[in-house]
Design a protein around this nucleic acid. Sequence first.
DNA 1: AGGTACATGTAACATGTTACATGATTCC
DNA 2: GGAATCATGTAACATGTTACATGTACCT
Lengths: 185, 185
Amino acid sequence: MSLPHAILTALLEKPSSGLELTRRFDRSIGFFWSATHQQIYRELGRLETAGLIRALPQDAPVRGQKKEYEVLPAGRVELERWTAGGDEPKAVREPLLLRLRAAAVVGTTGLDAELARHLALRRAQLADYREIERRDFPPSGTPADDRAADGDRLRHAVLRAGIGLETFWVEWLTETRAALPADPS
Amino acid sequence: MSLPHAILTALLEKPSSGLELTRRFDRSIGFFWSATHQQIYRELGRLETAGLIRALPQDAPVRGQKKEYEVLPAGRVELERWTAGGDEPKAVREPLLLRLRAAAVVGTTGLDAELARHLALRRAQLADYREIERRDFPPSGTPADDRAADGDRLRHAVLRAGIGLETFWVEWLTETRAALPADPS
DNA sequence: AGGTACATGTAACATGTTACATGATTCC
DNA sequence: GGAATCATGTAACATGTTACATGTACCT
């Protein structure tokens, strides 16, 4: 039940069309919640039906033509309600670890190549995050007003989570490759 | 498409009934791939139909009575095929980070309590992993035969991934709580 | 006979994925 | 007018979740 709230958050940050949302889910929002354009259009329809968002006025909506949405008061209330609540840390589902466990039983053929591939991807993602941090969160210097600073602190914390996770994976992948038995091919 | 392979791996490690698998998915296997008993029974049925596993002989299978499965040769081949392959690191979906991002827009009410709750859970999980490591992977001393040692190295690497991830979250949660604005209640 | 733990399952629904369909706009 | 891009959507399917149903074994 998180996708609708991800969309509400995104639309509060900035009213957008389905495709614009899709692009934002490929960048910043996607760093902690991914979604395809099909999911987004389906969910936009539901949120509109539920009266939580509405399409901005336009003359005669036509298929193929941009349609922007904004959050209605009821939508903001729902997001506040959800944000104040909680849930269990969701169970881990990491296929790479599953592969390792399987390899412990049926052999490590191809495993090192897969680890190398993941390492390259994680390094690229980490560099990407670091670049965003450099650009969007320069090392203090500008004490903005309190409310804006609070929001910034939270967004920075989210980004640091991404950086920390990628950093961990890069280290773990490097260690694990080093400890791997020579390829038995 | 990972659940069937998780089950094949588990059954190769040790033939089991549905309920036994469910319990193992709540412990060791669940550390990197979770599943409920309903998913497991459904998937066992599919794997049996597909000829990858079979129920161990028993006289007249009855509902309510234990039914053990073992992996057939075709199942091992399928697992080998899957293990040698690869896939993209799956997209992140972390509701807690989404909540932070939402809180940056609608306010931080209740957020610190939620972070504190996660911190306690992560610490408990970390202690659990450390205990398992202490018990199952004592600091060397016993150079077992090569094949067993290879499997152990891989299983240990999986466990270290769990330990590293929980360690990261404990640190991040601690830092983030410290940086949080005082509760605006 | 009643309760509890063990054990296997069904049904309904929610969410996520993959493949495809359709129209609008812009540039050549 | 054809190709590329923007933009919205449908359909079918796979996977995951929640609630419930049923039977066995054992203990009291």
